[in-house]
């Protein structure tokens, strides 16, 4: 079942179209990464799912129910973490979560119990300070605790890791992976390594549309380049290798930068052996030999070219 379905969404700010016929769906129990450059419309799309912005056209369904602009009942299924979450600085984390829990319809006892579970999970247990003294990472973790209060079916995190240092980013990503055991996560970012780390499917937002949409592993397979990278000990050897490789028929292209040679070839598993033959015949020692995996970054750059 699809938790979220976005159909033909259109959004103009003035005359400038931000989203243009955007459609995608997120199946249950997946971690969906929405990728795009800054200003591609990720936040706009998420705000429309929350009913905070009115789409110029199209429809959005959450758990099979239509999202209505303004007061939308579909928000009871969703936990939302905005890109820069703003809290009431004069409250403590516990007070804030208590307020959120009550708003979302939990009973006082249920909320207390849930807070007891969540505070240790996000590492804010026993912190009695007011929120205005929290660091960015702490606020982000409090933001995640807040989203999980009512055990949402869909967790939407907007740029949850962008403003954080590497340690803070890892903490948030780990939290999201844990959360994904019980819910569906949709998470936007422009940091590709974060997506590779936890997402199982992705959508690439480019020029108001999804330029790419599907399972991460499948996308990587489709964009697999058949390439090998060989590092020699010094530049002279690399230059020599380059000359010999040019002579081989199955090689599509060869490039050298300093002592590394990148080779594009057909059927690298079979023909790769022939390269190794060349290496041993010519007595060229190597430091490293690897089959190149397509990185999301390459795919990304390829698609938006």
């Amino acid at each position: 079942m699809n938790i979220l379905e976005v159909r033909h969404i259109q959004k103009n700010f003035g005359k400038h179209p931000v989203l243009n016929d955007l459609s995608f769906s997120v199946p249950e129990h997946s971690i969906f990464g929405l990728i795009g450059k800054n200003g591609a419309g990720k936040t706009t799309a998420m705000k429309m799912i929350m009913g905070f912005l009115k789409p110029t056209g199209g429809e959005i369904r959450v758990c099979g129910e239509n999202v209505a602009y303004g007061n939308t009942a579909t928000n009871r299924f969703i936990g939302y973490l905005p890109d820069v979450p703003e809290f009431y600085g004069y409250m403590s984390a516990k007070e804030y979560l208590m307020m959120c829990g009550r708003i979302t319809g939990l009973k006082r006892l249920q909320t207390s119990k849930r807070i007891q579970e969540l505070l240790p999970l996000v590492g804010l247990d026993g912190i009695k300070r007011r929120i205005h003294s929290f660091s960015r990472g702490m606020k982000q973790r409090l933001g995640i605790a807040q989203t999980l209060l009512n055990k949402p079916k869909l967790l939407i995190c907007d740029e949850a890791t962008s403003a954080l240092d590497p340690k803070g980013r890892k903490e948030i990503l780990d939290l999201l992976s844990v959360a994904a055991d019980q819910t569906t996560v949709m998470f936007s970012t422009h940091i590709l390594s974060d997506v590779e780390r936890i997402c199982d499917s992705i959508g690439l937002l480019h020029e108001g549309k999804l330029a790419l949409h599907g399972k991460l592993s499948e996308i990587k397979n489709t964009y697999r380049k058949e390439a090998v990278r060989i590092e020699t000990l010094n530049e002279a050897q690399a230059r020599r290798l380059l000359e010999h490789l040019h002579a081989l028929s199955f090689i599509q292209s060869v490039e050298r930068s300093q002592n590394a040679v990148t080779v594009q070839l057909h059927d690298p598993q079979k023909n790769g052996l022939k390269i190794i033959d060349v290496l041993s015949d010519e007595q060229i020692p190597i430091m490293n030999y690897e089959l190149l995996e397509p990185s999301l970054e390459n795919v990304f750059l390829d698609v938006i070219k």
Partner: peptide
């Protein structure tokens, strides 16, 4: 300040 966003996302009615 945008502090209303989270409470509204938790289903708080605007009324």
């Amino acid at each position: 300040k945008g502090t209303l966003i989270i409470p509204l996302s938790k289903g708080l009615s605007r009324y």
